[in-house]
């Protein structure tokens, strides 16, 4: 039994190290893109179209992961594209998190008409396919990084709201909330001091997961050609181009896909790991 707990804990710390390590690599790539990238991500060279990766026949030295249909360096584009992905992750997700968590806490704790209004709005939001909602919003407000971020916030706050509301409902019925009430703590003090710390692990895990989701939404919007301008590199845009020339140059699709896959996976696993870290009962 103790051994099982130990192996689980060991698996957990491995998860944190691996996912945190990969995200560190992506963050460094985004911050120091001009220093790291071997080529200008926008430089086209029609003589160097669809060069295969360096280890294959017909490769050109200096183009480690090959080139795309316009002769642009795939590696450099992946590195620069991480800037867009991380901007979306670190701006859209926290804002959606704050809005959704506050509404979820208020709805779950106060109940009554506050809960009714929030729950009805959540119902309406839940009736939309989220991807279609995002595409619709960006098509309406216009493409660009700001629109993508705004669309993610507008759509994904309900993820936080639903989870936080449900957790708050559970916590509200706990004896220690009654005890705090007897002692005369105000409702706001109880919400902040007693309820919020119990809901926090779930919020942290969801925030990390949401960062991955935000990266994916940006990629999906790029994939249907609705994110930022087509020239600026994004992982989704590269994947969309790769999808069309998949039979001639698979590497244009494969490498951004692997990077996207690992990043999303890392955000998800980091969230699970942090959730346990934040929970004193599991320590």
């Amino acid at each position: 039994m103790a051994e099982a707990v130990l192996t689980r804990r060991r698996r957990r710390s491995w998860r944190l190290i691996l996912s945190g390590g990969w995200l560190g690599v992506v963050v460094i790539a985004a911050l120091f893109a001009p220093l790291i990238a071997p080529h200008d991500p926008l430089a086209q060279d029609l003589l160097l179209q669809r060069l295969p990766p360096a280890w294959m026949a017909g490769a050109e030295p200096g183009y480690l992961l090959g080139t795309d249909g316009l002769g642009r360096d795939v590696l450099s584009r992946i590195i620069y594209a991480s800037q867009v992905a991380l901007t979306v992750a670190f701006v859209a997700a926290p804002i959606a998190c704050i809005i959704g968590s506050v509404l979820g806490l208020l709805a779950g704790y106060y109940g009554g008409w506050v809960d009714q209004i929030v729950s009805r709005i959540v119902d309406v939001w839940m009736a939309f396919p989220p991807v279609l909602f995002a595409i619709l919003l960006v098509a309406v407000i216009g493409t660009g990084l700001h629109s993508v971020i705004l669309a993610i916030i507008v759509i994904d706050w309900i993820r936080f709201c639903r989870v936080v509301r449900a957790e708050t409902l559970v916590q509200r019925r706990m004896d220690y909330v009654d005890s705090a009430h007897i002692v005369g703590l105000s409702r706001i003090a109880i919400l902040v001091k007693e309820v919020l710390p119990n809901v926090l692990p779930a919020i942290v895990a969801l925030l990390s997961l949401e960062m991955g989701i935000a990266v994916i939404v940006e990629a999906i919007l790029s994939f249907v050609n609705l994110s930022i301008s087509t020239d600026d590199p994004t992982w989704g845009g590269m994947i969309a181009e790769g999808r069309t020339i998949i039979h001639f140059a698979w590497w244009v699709l494969v490498f951004p896909l692997i990077v996207l896959f690992l990043t999303v996976l890392a955000f998800g696993q980091l969230g699970e790991g942090l959730k346990d870290r934040f929970d004193p009962v599991l320590q």
Partner: peptide
């Protein structure tokens, strides 16, 4: 109530906030 009365609850585990 706060100034005059206090409760010793049934279950000492659930009456204490686990994360504080």
């Amino acid at each position: 109530i706060a100034h005059t009365s206090a409760l010793i609850p049934q279950d000492p585990l659930t009456a204490l906030n686990p994360v504080r």
